[in-house]
Structures are given as C-alpha cells and as structure tokens.
Design a protein around this nucleic acid. Structure first.
Ligand SMILES: [Mn+2]
Ligand SMILES: [Mn+2]
Ligand SMILES: [Mn+2]
Ligand SMILES: [Mn+2]
Lengths: 229, 229
DNA sequence: ACAAATTTTTAGATTTGCCTAAAATTTAAT
DNA sequence: ATTAAATTTTAGGCAAATCTAAAAATTTGT
C-alpha cells in the first residue's frame, strides 16, 4: 500500500518538516507560510521552499508557488504517526526512566524517528495505552485518531470558576521548571479567586493553597472546564 | 573535553563505520582492510576510503594509505559506547517489550544512535544493569569496560563434556529461529555424547533431551566450560 | 493605483555520503 | 624478477539538505 511504502522511506528531515507543517496548520488543514516553517525550524526560507518541492513530489503536501503549503491526507497520517511516537516516548521517559517533564522533549525528538511498528505498539502496551503525554497533549492511536480534550486557558475563565489543570500551552523547559518550582502540576485543582485590574495577574487557589500568578502564566495553563465550583 | 565534544557531533554513518572497524579489528587494536569494511557494510571500497579520511581527521582512526586502518583510543571508546547502547536496547526489547531474540537487532541498529547519557544510564538501571545481551554478548559498562566471558564453541569440546549454553556466534535471524524451532536456548545444559566420523555432526543431550545437530550448528554455539560432567 | 515593504522563489555554492571508472600500489604467481 | 592479480586510492559526479544573494511575486500603505 502507498502509505506503507512511503512511511519507511522518509528521511528524518522530511519527517520534521511534515510535523512542523502539521503543528502550524492546525492538523494540516490550513495553509502554512514558508517563513513560519523556516522560523519554527530555525532554518532559511529558501531551504523550506526546496524541501516543500520534494514533499510535494512525494504527495505529502499540496503546494502552489507563493500560495503556502498544506498537508495531503497522506501527509496528515504521516504527521500523526510521528506525533504518536513522540508522545509515547515522552510518557515512557517519565513513567519508566524517571525523567522530569522538562527533560523529555529533546530525547523524544530523536526517538520519534525510529522506524518499527512492532516497537511502538509494544511500547503503547507497556505503558497501558496512555491517552495523554506528560504535557497533557493527546496521543493519537494506531490509526491516527485522537480526541482533543475539552479544555480552556486559565486566563479565559471567570472569577470563582476553575477546574483541574490538564495541560500546558508552552512546554518549554523554562516554563515547566517554573511550574515545578511553584508547585504547579497537571492534576492540580485550580480556582480563580480574583483578577487584578492593573496587570491582569490572578489570585488563585491551587489544591487549597493560595498564590498569585501573572497573566502570562495563566495564559499557558489549560484547565478542564467544570463550571461553577 | 575532546571526547565529549566529538561524541555528540558524530553522524550516524561515522558511528557505523567506527563500530564496524571495532568488530573487524578485535577491539580495534588490529589493522582492518578497506575491502573488509566495504563488504560488511555493503558499500563500495571507494566510499570506505572517503570515510576513513574523515575519521582520521577527527582522530578516531589511525590511517596510512594502503596500510589499513585501526581505531585510536578515542575511536575505541566511541565504539564501546555505541555497542553498549545497542546491547542495552536489545535487552530492553526482549525483557520489556516481548521481542524475540531474532527481532531485536534491526531495531537496535537504529536505537544505538540516540544521543543521551541520561537515557542510556536510566535504561541500564531499569534493566537492573544487565551484563549480557540476548545473544550472550557482553555489555560494556559506562566506562567502556567489560569482561569477555570464558566460553568455547560447542564444536571444540571433547566427548562426554559440556556446559551451559551462553551465547551464539552467528546471531542472524535465520540461525536464531532455527534454534527456537529446535528448542535450543541460552541457559540450556548441553553435553556432547558422540561425534560422527562421517560429517562431524554431534549427538548431544540438551536439558535431558537427546538430539543430533550438524557441525555447523555446533560451531555457532558457545558454552561455558565446566569440564567433566 | 502605485510605490514600498514583505514574502517567497530561484540561482549558485557547500558538505556529507555515496557511486563508477580509472589509476596507483601492494601482493601473489610463475 | 617480472608479470599478473588483487587491493586501495583518486578523479569526477550525483542527490540530499543546507546556505547566501538576487530576482520575482504578493501584500500593504498612502
Ligand atoms: Mn515534546
Ligand atoms: Mn509533549
Ligand atoms: Mn545486535
Ligand atoms: Mn546482540
């Protein structure tokens, strides 16, 4: 089958481009700009154009000069396969090898390119088929299906409401370490008590403990909506 | 330190060459022929010469035109690091992901190039610091040290002697599957009962069960010598 | 609408890793 | 000791993936 042929012939670089286009294009449906890809991948726009042409040859992306790029159905499936591997490896590193959530991404960037269906399916089983990675992001199943969890940014909820912290928007090591230092983790119960007029900072109650966080922090924390508390 | 700088800048291809030179040169001490490398790596001698020059620039091998190649101390340490990773991953695949011993090599060939000290040390701990891989080959420790087990080929032992099967010389999938089919595994107690004059085939007793194996088979099975039984 | 700014693509070069074909060197044979 | 055979290296080329600089297309601002 075409998908299988392609899947095992892709280079690491091609896979990274496909993944980036997926992330920038909200599941690959939207058109993505050359410059946006270049910026995120820390490469030059001319390099991106080169690669886009190659990916287009392989029917992984739709491309018309100057009109941006989007994933084909094949490209989308490929992206989901890589993301599945990335997130499963992140779970493995945290659950089995005692990595902290700010250490896993770099290694997962390497591990996501290992090619073996049996490996990834066995890993999935070893981890008891996790649905979310250490940052709260959903893990696609074998067929690329996954349910985006119903969540909203803490910065968007009304006073006196809250919910369980289920994810981070920014998953950079610096932000994650900041959260660790301040005792904020996934699973914590968070309630917004007050919002400062002046700078938008929030007084919250997190697992019973009161603290103040900036608007920037709040706009990078996802909570599972649970209406009035 | 020079070693560390180098270690993380090596390409996959460079690592594969270093590993091959190690295997062909008995711990890298002996000189290895260009053609031997080319044959084992299924590449052309001219490509090998190219790469040898690059490795020589990086002080990983000693090289004089037409005189063969050998590993430097740095090259040797690098090779041991890669072999450590390869064998630890093989153990992981068998112990944690229920791979059989004939399925692990191909995937380990990919996994051995993942760069993360923390990853490999954690994996070592998860597996309880194994000393041998699924094929009975020794796993170098963090510092590259490992003890070659005292063993001999089954084809070399005298009649009425034997020992525990501790390794295979040929670890190709076909040989390993053959052993599976015939119920021969590491840990089995093997005793040589009789050797046929005609074709050198052996009548053995393996864990109490009698069977006959060809000379070729016997010359690919290692047993731990335990003298007279 | 048209010039200016921005984005995107092309052209040409570089590095890695591989190839084929031909030349150089070493080894083996008579 | 020559010649023949095998091994190894050089020379020249190619594809992937990147870069810089310049040209082309699109978007924006007045
Ligand atoms: Mn990640
Ligand atoms: Mn993640
Ligand atoms: Mn192996
Ligand atoms: Mn092995």
């Amino acid at each position: 089958m075409y998908f299988c042929v392609n899947k095992y012939l892709m280079t690491r670089s091609e896979e990274n481009y496909i993944k980036t286009i997926f992330h920038l294009g909200r599941k690959g449906t939207q058109e993505v700009a050359t410059n946006a890809i270049a910026e995120l991948m820390e490469t030059k726009p001319s390099s991106v154009t080169d690669m886009i042409k190659r990916l287009s040859e392989k029917d992984l992306v739709n491309y018309k000069r100057y009109q941006g790029v989007s994933l084909t159905a094949l490209g989308n499936k490929t992206a989901l396969g890589i993301i599945r591997k990335h997130r499963l490896w992140e779970v493995f590193l945290v659950e089995k090898l005692d990595f902290s959530w700010d250490e896993v991404h770099e290694v997962a960037e390497q591990l996501e390119h290992i090619k073996s269906d049996k490996l990834i399916d066995s890993l999935d089983r070893l981890l008891a088929f996790p649905k979310f990675d250490p940052h709260g992001d959903p893990i696609p199943d074998k067929n690329g299906g996954f349910k985006e969890r119903d969540r909203e940014l803490l910065s968007e909820v009304a006073i006196n409401t809250g919910g369980v912290c289920v994810g981070v928007k920014d998953s950079s090591a610096t932000f994650l370490k900041f959260l660790d230092k301040n005792g904020i983790a996934l699973g914590n119960q968070i309630k917004v008590m007050e919002i400062e007029e002046f700078d938008g900072s929030l007084n919250i109650e997190i697992d019973g403990r009161k603290m103040q966080i900036s608007h920037v922090i709040a706009s990078n924390l996802y909570i599972k909506a649970k209406d009035e508390i």
